[in-house]
Design a protein around this nucleic acid. Structure first.
Lengths: 188, 188
DNA sequence: GATCACATGTAATAAGTTACATGATTGC
DNA sequence: GCAATCATGTAACTTATTACATGTGATC
């Protein structure tokens, strides 16, 4: 049982999900490919933390819909108070920014403008997801009712938006700095 | 040559560094242990991207001080315009937040308060690092002189502070929400 | 006497990515 | 016809962590 396994259990607290759905929904929080998720689900099923029902679909391939068992819920509750690992962040762009003095100014601008587009897309996506949660959830969150399904999703989306906007502001600030010295348009 | 290898080359643009120093300085940008870094340095040395001089020290163990070769600089310049990988973020805490409805309110508060302490420490550390860069660097950055050594470090520190403050604000907001409904003090 | 910081390295394991594999349906 | 979405799985590989290994000097 590694962190990703507990993460899958956490996702299943919202209700039964197929492996494919779990793979999609965990992406914003924890990047993982289906090749990592399917074996973990099989293992957790064997250990009794989750169970599944095969669901036949016309027009789509069959799927396995997983749900939490009592043992799974117990495992989840045991995991939460355990010491929480430090966040791991690896962003290739930041390594490039570190040696920005070695970069052509035009390339530097491109690097930041690309990122700005990425963050704008993300922010829009997160706002759409917020809207999908509905006003009932918003009211529950504003009342501090953390037991409400959707409380976790809502505050996580708020965080993601805050982070993306902070980063976007930073990109704009740097692009502004770079334009003070338009070396790129003069050549080097 | 993987991303971490290029990251090490990027760090070496600031001047010669030992493997140990590289390991320490790369941490805020890209988490890696010494066991990963030393073999990569050895490999890059064999391939001619870096070179080292053994430096004997009294009172401390001997060290190998690495520096960039012309080939290393060339490799670095080739890497920069290549497509940049998406950032990878994995934070166990966010998985716990997702299933916050299954958590005891007291545990939830603890989770956030622990994080707030972590961010406060980080912010203080980053501010100290900013101060260490000196006013000369600040002036160069404000003038948009990206070729200045320290430009990259300065803007990366600014970003790190922005991200940490955004997260800290988020934690405070959530703790405020949790206090609206003090279920934890009544028991469950 | 124990732990920490410095300093480098290897070995074993765990975690994560890419590629291989299959197969239906829908849209371009 | 070709790519994309849905859906599951395995194999091969890369990347990252933990543990093993060694040794000094400083601090508690």
């Amino acid at each position: 049982m590694n962190t990703l396994s507990y993460g899958l259990l956490a996702l299943l607290t919202r209700g039964p999900r197929s492996g494919y759905e779990l793979m999609q929904h965990i992406q914003p929080i924890w990047q993982a490919k289906h090749s990592q998720i399917y074996p973990l689900l099989a293992l957790m099923e064997k250990r009794g933390f989750v169970q599944y029902v095969p669901v036949a679909q016309k027009d789509k391939p069959d799927k396995k819909v997983y749900s939490l068992t009592d043992e799974g819920i117990a495992a989840l509750r045991e995991w939460v108070p355990e010491p929480t690992g430090d966040p791991v962040k690896r962003d290739e762009m930041l390594l490039k920014v570190y040696c920005i003095g070695f970069i052509e100014p035009a390339q530097a601008r491109q690097l930041f403008e690309e990122r700005m587009r990425m963050y704008q897309c993300k922010i829009e996506k997160y706002h759409r997801m917020l809207d999908d949660l509905g006003s009932e959830t918003v009211q529950a969150v504003e009342a501090g009712r953390m037991e409400h399904p959707g409380f976790g999703s809502y505050i996580l989306l708020k965080r993601a938006i805050g982070q993306a906007e902070s980063d976007l502001d930073w990109c704009r600030w740097v692009v502004g700095l770079l334009q003070l010295n338009p070396t790129g348009s003069v050549g080097n």
